[in-house]
Design a protein around this nucleic acid. Structure first.
Ligand code: FES
Ligand code: FES
Lengths: 140, 140
DNA sequence: ATATACCCGACTAAAATAGTCAAGTTTTTG
DNA sequence: CAAAAACTTGACTATTTTAGTCGGGTATAT
């Protein structure tokens, strides 16, 4: 039961931005240095964040990225979805006629996994980027 | 964010046992046929379930496996743990001196992922095998 | 002009996963 | 006792996923 690193880095990078941007664009180079994430990897991640309207870009010298929403209004769920990190613990498709075991009806565990997905989803839905910034003990 | 199939099948197989065992051992062959899971795969799964004292085995003709606890007392979490399915969404070790980014202190996101793990864990902790059997609409 | 920094598709190496195979041992029952 | 049912175990492999890199762009401030 793991989250992929792209999602983790995305959240980490956005939290970094929230802390260090002063209404200015934050360059990936700076995030890379501060958070120890590969610049090349960050580029790939931010490409998706941009496509999903989580950040907007500023090109050229002194360019970088800016958050589209304020941290208090940016759901963690939206970040995960931007990185294709679906909260779907099993592969059974709701719309498909076939259940996970190839039969025509839902398997004995189906409803349970649904409940699980809802439980996890609601966590990510309720948490905002700003919730990460509350703890003052962390080092940046 | 996925659960592996071994854990899924384990839960499914145990739910099957809970339904079909009448104080008798249930053979893997029967579970395999009813739930459409490879017999060879089930063997591998039940080996672990046995080692972790979730089921006990009865050898020979009319043998099979039996639940050690009644469904109402068998936590889903225990099943997952038996299959090495740790509820640990990121790789950062608590005891390790190193944080996920190689620095000496916890990263900015650490506490958040901890919260997530606790949230998911408590779900699996609270759910029992019997909770899967309530829904009468399913087909076996 | 040129350096900075975003843009984007393709690529690869490594790790995890799902599932199989072979070769047992134990126990019941005819 | 013999044979069949059913559990036991470790090793093995093919596939898929993941993490991370590369190369060659384009836009813009100074
Ligand atoms: S049918 Fe949906 S999980 Fe099995
Ligand atoms: S230090 Fe634990 S998650 Fe980053």
């Amino acid at each position: 039961m793991k989250l992929n690193t792209k999602s983790r880095y995305a959240v980490m990078a956005l939290a970094d931005m929230a802390v260090f941007s002063n209404q200015k664009a934050v360059s990936l180079r700076d995030i890379s240095l501060r958070q120890g994430i590969s610049l090349l990897y960050l580029e790939q991640i931010f490409l998706k964040l941009k496509k999903n309207n989580i950040v907007k870009s500023v090109r050229g010298i002194n360019g970088g990225y800016m958050l589209v929403k304020i941290p208090k209004e940016l759901k963690i769920l939206d970040i995960l979805l931007a990185l294709d990190q679906k909260v779907k613990t099993i592969g059974c498709k709701k719309d498909s006629k076939k259940s996970c075991n190839g039969k025509s009806t839902k398997c004995i565990t189906h409803n349970f996994w649904d409940e699980l997905d809802i439980h996890i989803n609601s966590f990510f839905e309720s948490k905002k980027l700003s919730d990460l910034l509350k703890n003052k003990e962390v080092r940046y």
